[in-house]
């Protein structure tokens, strides 16, 4: 709606009678009044149609082909999709989207970026109860990615890792279990529950290899090997690896979470009280041992 139209409408209102309860109405035809039909259920057949097996709901059993050998019995069982509904999903964010978020000030690159940061922008959502386990950073926009970030994602391809590192940033892939993710998708809601921050669980066996792999920048990999792999990747893709040791943001770029930690700056076992703006830390030896293990 152009403001010109709005101005015209407002100017016209000046010479019209006062808008009051008597002279307002909805747009004509915008409301459909429900009719009451005749008969027991409003004269309706409940979408089942008229006559035949449709109306009587006496269908043949599923897959039955009136005497043929049914399709589902013609071939042997080949379970390609076994356990498919249980696999971990990683809803994607592209490098282009990330760059846009940085350019539009949705994301602050002077601090480490993780799942919490992206969820707080309101532009990215995950549903851990639907087996979604975090961000898959995809390579769309890899050639124009410029932001120097310290980002932690849950899945990243080799090209994405190269794009981030070429821009002078660092990338880590980290695993969060379902309960940790539930805390991260809405931290305010979690803190309002007033329960201690849980410890992050170690990855399951089928994900352990990925997150211990230096080539994948796994959070459980040896840092020495990671810096070696950074060089290898730079040579493979043919770019000069920026030396982050000389970077003024070196402390930010090397900030990492503990494998048991969920939020930056907050340890497991702590309770964040948003109302009084205090953090409660456990003192008992037993608790400390539990949360540090």
């Amino acid at each position: 709606m152009g403001s010109n139209t709005v101005d015209k409408a407002l100017t016209m209102l000046r010479s019209l009678p006062r808008v009051c309860l008597k002279n307002i109405r909805d747009n004509p035809g915008s409301k459909i009044t429900q009719k009451r039909g005749r008969g027991q259920h409003g004269g309706d057949k409940h979408g089942a149609g008229n006559k035949g097996s449709g109306q009587r709901q006496n269908y043949m059993r599923l897959g039955y082909e009136t005497g043929n050998r049914p399709f589902y019995l013609r071939f042997g069982f080949e379970p390609y999709y076994k356990g498919h509904h249980l696999r971990r999903q990683y809803p994607p964010v592209s490098l282009l989207q990330l760059q846009t978020m940085v350019d539009t000030n949705r994301v602050d690159v002077s601090k480490p970026i993780d799942l919490v940061t992206l969820c707080n922008t309101g532009l990215y959502r995950i549903f851990p109860d639907q087996h979604q386990f975090g961000i898959n950073l995809t390579d769309e926009g890899a050639d124009i990615f410029q932001a120097k970030v310290n980002i932690e994602v849950q899945w990243a391809s080799e090209l994405v890792i190269a794009a981030v590192e070429r821009a002078g940033g660092v990338i880590t892939t980290a695993y969060y279990d379902m309960h940790s993710l539930q805390c991260m998708i809405n931290p305010q809601k979690f803190f309002e529950r007033g329960i201690p921050i849980p410890r992050r669980m170690v990855p399951p066996t089928d994900a352990a290899d990925y997150y211990a792999d230096a080539a994948k920048r796994g959070y459980l990999a040896d840092p020495e090997k990671v810096s070696e792999e950074r060089l290898v990747l730079a040579q493979k893709y043919g770019y000069n690896l920026p030396v982050i040791e000389n970077d003024p943001d070196y402390p930010m770029l090397t900030e990492r979470k503990d494998p048991r930690q969920i939020f930056f700056g907050l340890n497991p076992g702590w309770v964040v009280n948003l109302k009084d703006k205090v953090i409660l830390k456990p003192l008992e030896e037993e608790l400390l041992q539990y949360y540090n293990s």
Partner: peptide, 8 residues
């Protein structure tokens, strides 16, 4: 925009 329908 003075939406009379929304007011209604």
């Amino acid at each position: 925009n003075p939406r009379i329908d929304i007011i209604f």
